[in-house]
Nucleic acid binder design. Structure first.
Lengths: 193, 193
DNA sequence: CTAGGGTGTTACCGGTCTGTAACTTCCGCA
DNA sequence: TGCGGAAGTTACAGACCGGTAACACCCTAG
């Protein structure tokens, strides 16, 4: 009963939405296409009329989640127009919000872990999307007037990535509990240079 | 031909060694017990005479890799007896060494990502082993004379965890390339307080 | 030499997986 | 009203999965 996304919309959209949710919660290899279509209130044939394979569906899901993340960035700009430093702090705050108890981590990073085949079609998509996100964070740091923008952005990236994976192995009371403090003091020390 | 660990030793040891290697490279759900036993030069029946289930084998593999990691810590003490700060720098150096191009990340973290079921028997083992490793790093920082030992240890943990997962999504030229610089300057700044 | 335990072999069970074929039903639009 | 395309249904193919049963083998300890 937890996997029911059966509101009426076009089957393709329902499948995509449901697949994102189920891949996120149960992992890619932990969910079959049958389970997705059932939870989406449709059937396997319809899925394969819209997506040529499960791999293609995976890729579309990753693109969709990246698009959602992109909207969050737009919200930062809307909330603090022109104030890049405030947007950076908003990024930290938003990131820490996502580190709640039942956090299942970053879909792209999780997919990279699960899809270990070096030539899996999703891998290049993951790399592209992650590189785009990195560019965004670097630009934000640079525009916030920080000197070593790349280094700060990369450090913040690793901290967040680490916090998300640490949550899954030791839980919310582990090292990830200190994420905000780490990130904020990092930003402060970079600004002081 | 890449998965052959067929040197003569007792079947149980061969299975454990082979399983560790294959779980690490292909992921837990990406490897079947048949493939493990074949690569170990034995058969499925023998596996199930020594391990009561695949889950139990997974757990034994995690314990074995943790034991190997523990030996690396012993080496730090052997190389720099009593000099805890030197051991901390050795930890950073060793960690960065493991971030080579075809790094597949931390087995325990990867397992936590793959085994999404909250009540999977391996999860509590992962948590225990990770907490033990955390305690070790905290103690090392504390004995190295650093004030906020827990915070430094947790920050270094997240950086390393993040570097290992970042490697798998964007490769070795991504943010993880700066791991040593980040870790060293972190240690320096904590020592200066 | 012999007994017995560890090991290898083969076959099998029931289930799940991705993906497809053939057919029916439904719904919107002209 | 009737037509056409989208969606649903059922069944299936072929492969793989974890796990077990029954039996033959071999090697070593006594």
């Amino acid at each position: 009963m937890t996997d029911g996304v059966v509101e009426r919309s076009r089957p393709r959209d329902r499948i995509l939405e449901t697949a994102q949710d189920m891949f996120h919660r149960h992992g890619i290899k932990g969910v079959g296409v049958d389970a997705i279509t059932e939870a989406a209130g449709t059937n396997k044939m319809t899925l394969y009329r819209h997506f040529e394979s499960k791999d293609e569906l995976i890729i579309e899901c990753l693109r969709a989640t990246a698009a959602k993340a992109s909207k969050i960035w737009d919200a930062f700009e809307a909330q603090h127009p022109g104030d890049k430093l405030a947007q950076l702090h908003a990024w930290v705050h938003k990131a820490s919000e996502m580190l709640n108890a039942d956090c299942r981590g970053c879909d792209m990073a999780n997919a990279a872990v699960e899809l270990s085949e070096a030539d899996h079609p999703a891998r290049r998509v993951i790399k592209e999307l992650k590189e785009a996100q990195r560019e965004k964070l670097v630009a934000l740091c640079r525009d916030a007037g920080i000197g070593q923008a790349e280094l700060l952005a990369d450090t913040l990236s690793l901290l967040l990535e680490g916090a998300r994976v640490s949550m899954q192995s030791v839980g919310a009371e582990g090292p990830s509990a200190q994420f905000v403090r780490m990130a904020e003091s990092l930003i402060a020390s970079f600004r002081a240079r």
